[in-house]
């Protein structure tokens, strides 16, 4: 594995941002973890000086146990063919961050989605209204403490399933006179034979 260009980037990042934890994961993958207040300068540094001009993805991870949200940015450099993954953790109780739409206009849409699905408030983004969901008045649904099974059970009519919970393979085999192979039999135990 030739990690020359990746290590070069890692060195450049460490020289400018001393607190950044840089890890070269493999060829074409660099992961940077950073304090959240350093993210806007870091992203513009990556864009202007390190040639990561393309923001490929922007998402959020819920670390319920740590009481943190993690924002993940994926940047791509066309010149060096390297992906830079930037991660930062923000407070989960009062999730706030600044918009980065001045760097990449498409970030606005990602921010709207993160706002709707996790409830993160992006300062400076004025389009954080209703996005995909309509008239949603519960917890943001992608948070891990939102119980989707419970919500669906309470709000939507549930049609009960078949009582016998029987594997249909036997029924089909009986009709068509087909042999069920031995290894498959243990998956299709009929209730009345148990």
């Amino acid at each position: 594995m030739n990690l020359e260009k990746e290590n070069k980037f890692a060195k450049q990042i460490n020289e400018t941002f001393h607190s950044a934890v840089v890890k070269v994961q493999r060829e074409r993958r660099i992961i940077v973890e950073l304090r959240s207040d350093l993210i806007p300068p870091f992203l513009s540094f990556a864009k202007e000086y390190l040639s990561f001009i393309h923001m490929a993805h922007y998402s959020c991870v819920d670390w319920l146990e740590e009481n943190k949200f993690e924002l993940v940015f994926m940047l791509w450099s066309y010149e060096e063919d390297v992906m830079l993954i930037v991660k930062t953790k923000i407070d989960r109780e009062k999730p706030e961050f600044v918009t980065i739409k001045h760097l990449w206009p498409q970030a606005e849409t990602y921010e709207r989605e993160i706002h709707e699905m996790y409830g993160v408030d992006f300062k400076g983004n004025d389009r954080l209204g209703e996005f995909i969901l309509e008239d949603w008045d519960d917890l943001p649904p992608m948070r891990r403490d939102f119980d989707t099974v419970k919500y669906a059970g309470e709000h939507y009519f549930t049609r009960p399933g078949r009582e016998d919970a029987q594997d249909v393979r036997e029924t089909i085999a009986r009709h068509s006179g087909e042999e069920i192979p031995d290894f498959a039999k243990k998956y299709s135990i009929r209730r009345d034979e148990e």
Partner: peptide, 16 residues
């Protein structure tokens, strides 16, 4: 449309 299919536990789709 019959019983929710693979979206039986979705927070945003009707099941029947």
């Amino acid at each position: 449309t019959i019983n929710g299919g693979m979206y039986w536990d979705s927070y945003n789709t009707i099941k029947a």
